[in-house]
Structures are given as C-alpha cells and as structure tokens.
Design a protein around this nucleic acid. Structure first.
Lengths: 123, 123
DNA sequence: TATATACGGAACCACATGGTTCAGTATTCA
DNA sequence: TGAATACTGAACCATGTGGTTCCGTATATA
C-alpha cells in the first residue's frame, strides 16, 4: 500500500521547481558527475552547486559518494513515482471535471477562438 | 521533440510544492468554490487564500470570475500536460540509467505493473 | 438607509531560497 | 615536502514565500 507523505511530495516538487536542479537531474541521467563537473556545467560556484545537490539529495533524487577528494553524484533510487502518481490522479480529476461540463468545454473552445470578446458565461 | 518553456514548468512545480495549494486543486476538482469557502476549509484568512489562488491562477491551474461580491474559483484549462511530460521523460531517463542494475529494474517492472492495474491510493 | 458580507490591497513579519565570498581541511601529485 | 585540487562550512546578501493585520470599497440584505 503506497502511502505518500505530503512532506515528501512537497520537497520533491520544490526540488523540481528550479531549472538548474532539473538540469542537474537530466545531466545525471546521461552520466554521473562530480560537484566540480556540475558547477562548471551550470556556471556557478562549487558551494552553490553543492546546495542544489543537497536539495536533490534531500528529496531522494540523487545519491552521492565521496572517494578521495571527489564527491560523485548519481541518480538516486526514487524515479518520481509519487509525483507521477499525484499528477496522474489530478489529471483524472481534471478530465472528469471537464467531461461533466460539456457546455463549459464548448464555451472554452469558443473562447479560445474568439479571444475573450464574449464575457457572458453561464456556469 | 516537445518544447516546454522552462518558466512555465518552474512556476507550475513551485505552485504544486505547497500542500495547501494541492489541496485547493483537489477541492476544486470536486466543486467550484469562492475564496471564502476555500479560506474556511483550509483555516486561513481570506487574504492568505487569495494569495494561494493567485499563485495557482498565475500557473494556469485555476481561473476565477467575480459575480457580485463573490469570486468563484474553478479548475483552469491546464491539465498538467507539461509537468506530466517532464516527469514521464525523466522517468524514462531514470529507468534507462538503472537498466544495468538488474535488481532495481525488476523492482521497477513490478511496480509499474501494479501501478497500471490498480490506482487505489489516497493522498 | 444601515449593516453585514466578500473581497482587494498595502504593509508587515519570520523564515526559506539561491546565490556569493572567505577560510578552512583533506587528497593528490610533482 | 609543497603546491594544486576538491570539497566543506560559516557567514552574508537580496529576494521570495506564506502567512498575518488593518483599512477600504463594492455588493447584498434587513
């Protein structure tokens, strides 16, 4: 029984809301990398990148391991299951909400076409 | 290749990172509501709720309409398409990254199977 | 008309975020 | 050994966030 805590989803979505961090995830999807590698690739200081990696690690998206003086980052065990589940569930809700209201969807289509000249709307 | 604007995804994920706002979305999935309704349901001031609704509106998840003195909120035209796309794409990346590790991929397959069949999970 | 309701907006607050610099420590290598 | 490398951590800064209160305005209602 998968029970996702609100806290995890919070930190996960927060982690994903930064373009640098999404970039880091994509980068690590291609190859493992050190802090220095990532800092260089995203044009910021080591300290700055370390913070981002820390956030990703906190969210469970990244694991790191230090060998010698180099800390290597790689994708962690979480594959965004819970976030995918939340979004999927919401999309069902959303679709159901719009399915039920045919008139609204029609209204919406008309609106997108005529670009907001009509204000009269029944709901 | 899907081209999604980084800005939109940023604000979308940021909007979803707050549990109150996710709650509001789920609530609006069940029924439209006024600011006062939502403020009461989530135990905060009108002004506080108005800010949350503003964030959701900015992200395109919610639309509002004022009739008389009541502003009614409803789910907007965006159904998290871009966010679902990003996550789906990342999950593929992630899975490919772990292809080498047999135990993990087995775990993934088992999970995806049960995910696809039964969506019985709650928030 | 008087009053209660529902919102709008400004200002404030504590704390988080996304960066930086600076001063270390631990490793590697010539 | 000594110098360069790779990171760590503290401190700082500007801005953003999630709330609040206070006051104002428009609308509904008795």
């Amino acid at each position: 029984m998968v029970q996702y805590s609100s806290f995890r989803v919070d930190t996960a979505f927060a982690a994903l809301s930064d373009p640098t961090r999404r970039g880091v995830l994509e980068q690590l999807g291609r190859a493992d990398a050190s802090i220095t590698d990532l800092a260089g690739k995203f044009h910021m200081t080591l300290t700055g990148m370390k913070k981002h990696v820390g956030v990703l690690q906190e969210a469970g998206f990244v694991t790191t391991q230090k060998v010698g003086r180099v800390r290597t980052c790689k994708l962690g065990p979480r594959g965004l299951e819970e976030e995918a589940a939340w979004i999927s569930r919401y999309r069902q809700l959303w679709a159901a909400r719009f399915d039920a209201l045919d008139t609204v969807i029609e209204e919406l289509k008309r609106k997108e076409k005529s670009d907001g000249r009509r204000k009269t709307r029944r709901a």
